Amino acid sequence: MTTRLGRVTLVGAGPGSADLLTVRGLRALERADVIVADRLGARPVLDELGLDTPVIDVGKLPGHHAVPQERINALLVELALEGKHVVRLKGGDPYVFGRGGEELAACRDAGIPVDVVPGVTSAVSVPAIAGIPLTHRGLATAFSVVSGHDQLGEVGGGRDHTVVLLMGVGTLGHSAHVLARGARGADCPVAVIEDGYGEHQRVTIGTLGTIVAQAAQRRVRNPAVIVVGDVVTLSPYAPEELSARKAEAL
Rank of each mutant, 00 (worst) to 15 (best):
V55F: 12
I35T: 07
G111P: 10
G198E: 07
G148L: 11
L242V: 14
L61C: 11
N73L: 06
G157K: 12
V116N: 07
H85Q: 15
C107Y: 12
V86G: 02
A140I: 08
T53V: 15
V55Q: 07
K60G: 01
V126Q: 04
S147M: 09
V155F: 14
E78F: 02
P44K: 04
G206I: 07
Q151D: 15
E194D: 00
A215N: 01
V220I: 14
A224H: 01
R39F: 06
F143G: 02
E30G: 05
A123L: 05
S144A: 15
P44R: 09
G198K: 02
A66S: 13
A110R: 07
A106M: 13
A186I: 03
I211D: 07
S243C: 10
L165Y: 03
D52V: 03
P223H: 10
V190S: 02
E199M: 05
A128I: 06
L166C: 01
G148I: 06
V146G: 00
G156P: 02
T204N: 01
M1N: 12
H65K: 11
T141P: 04
T162N: 01
G50I: 06
G98F: 01
A80Q: 01
D93E: 11
Y197L: 00
P94T: 12
L26N: 02
D52M: 00
D38R: 04
L26A: 09
H64W: 10
G153Y: 08
A105D: 14
G173A: 14
P68Y: 01
G41C: 06
A186F: 04
D38E: 15
Q151I: 10
R181Q: 15
A180I: 05
G101A: 14
R4F: 01
H136V: 05
A142S: 15
L75Q: 13
P54L: 08
G153E: 14
E154D: 10
E78N: 13
E240P: 11
I35W: 07
V77P: 08
G100Y: 13
P133L: 04
E48P: 00
R219G: 10
L234H: 01
D160P: 05
V23D: 11
L104I: 09
S17Y: 00
L242N: 12
A191L: 10
V203I: 11
G138C: 13
G196I: 00
R43C: 02
A216E: 14
S144T: 15
R221W: 04
G14E: 13
L152N: 04
I226Y: 02
F143K: 08
P236M: 13
A249Y: 09
H65G: 07
A28D: 03
V192I: 15
R181M: 10
I211E: 00
G170V: 06
L21N: 05
S235R: 00
A247T: 15
A42H: 09
R202E: 11
E194M: 08
L179A: 05
V124W: 09
T3S: 13
S17Q: 06
G185F: 08
Q217I: 08
P113N: 14
H149F: 14
G156N: 13
Q69Y: 11
V45L: 09
Y237M: 03
G83S: 07
G100T: 06
P223I: 05
L172K: 08
